[in-house]
Amino acid sequence: MLEVQNVVKAFRSGDSTIKPVNGVSFSVEQGTFAAILGKSGSGKSTLLSLLGALDQATSGNVLVDGVNISQLPDTGLTAYRRNDIGFVFQQYNLIPNLSAKENVMLPMEFAGLSRAERSARAAELLDQVELTGDVHHRKANRLSGGQQQRVSIARALANRPKLILADEPTGNLDDETGELIIDLLRSLAHGQNTTILVVTHDLALAGKTDRKFRLARGRITEEPVGTAAGAHAG
């Protein structure tokens, strides 16, 4: 379970203080597919980086299965990123000179799995995201956008994380490929009991999630599922 308690992130900008995340609180049950909507610059990605321990909150707590990641030391944060969460980025962020399979094997290498285990699981995950055959051995920079995003999802699943954080996962994809990625994320959340939190301004994506939150002026509110009222493409 993910619990966010009164999280604030403040930046100094000249004489003023900017708070893209200002007292955000919400919780999400395990196995939920949830979306955070908001305009560009509303603080969505900042919130996601706080949840993913890429950045530190100015105040407040983020609890994952009861563990307060806001108070973890650097080594604890590294272990948290390695074992408990998976990232899916808008720009995919694969290592270009590694093959699709090698990219998926990387987090498992950091977790200390043997080469045989890594290879077998990477192949299984790539099959799961419907990438088969010689695509496994193709360099990441020779894959299409949709294929790269699938590899990115497979990589996020590598160490069986409790939580997957996806930042605009369909932002660089055409509608059809984007829809396939959304369906894939949804099936992963429900089929593998993985919490998936997607930051997006894609209303089609948000319409397929179990819960929707809106971030505006640093504050978060939950919207009823099945409505796109007040949604703003940004």
Binding site: G52, L54, D74, T75, T78, A79, R81, R82, N83, G86, F87, N93, I95, L106, P107, F110, A111, R155, N159
Partner: peptide
């Protein structure tokens, strides 16, 4: 730098 950032984001330690 970007690759290093990505590696850290997916769980690589400074030592690794």
């Amino acid at each position: 730098r970007r690759e290093i950032g990505v590696l850290k984001a997916i769980g690589a330690s400074n030592r690794t």
